[in-house]
Amino acid sequence: MSQAARIDEIVAAHVHREGPLLPILRDVQAELGCVSAEAETQVALALNLSRAEVHGVVSFYHDLSERPDPRPCVEICRAEACQARGAEALMDAARAAAGERVRLADVYCLGLCSVGPNAKLGDEVHARLDAARLASLIASA
């Protein structure tokens, strides 16, 4: 199926809801890896918005991106509670393990603040990480 046809399907699945834009953009991001300029235009037309309005939303939220990054992504919590448990000291090892193959993203809190340092790969969360466990998690990504 073409990308445009898939976006049409996503729009059709949500258009009856109140405030459908964010659910549509989340689905587009999840399936196509980004919300491209073409996708923005198509969604804007379908919802009777200007492309600027849609682009404004895409550029606002951290979860939405304008360009795809096909690499697997490991999100590492860098917030206060994980810092207090030594998350920052793991970052060099994490970068070394990730290299160019894996994308490391910062996340501010996974809600596991008593058992950090924590990281998330897809929908799987991992706690009580040390340098070795984080490196093996990144290697498995």
């Binding site: 919590c77 917030a79 206060e80 509670a81 994980c82 501010y108 809190c109 809600g111 596991l112 603040c113 008593s114």
Partner: peptide, 11 residues
């Protein structure tokens, strides 16, 4: 939208 670090009661 429990974004505060150090909180997890909502979750």
């Amino acid at each position: 939208d429990e974004g505060d670090s150090g909180t997890f009661a909502d979750r």
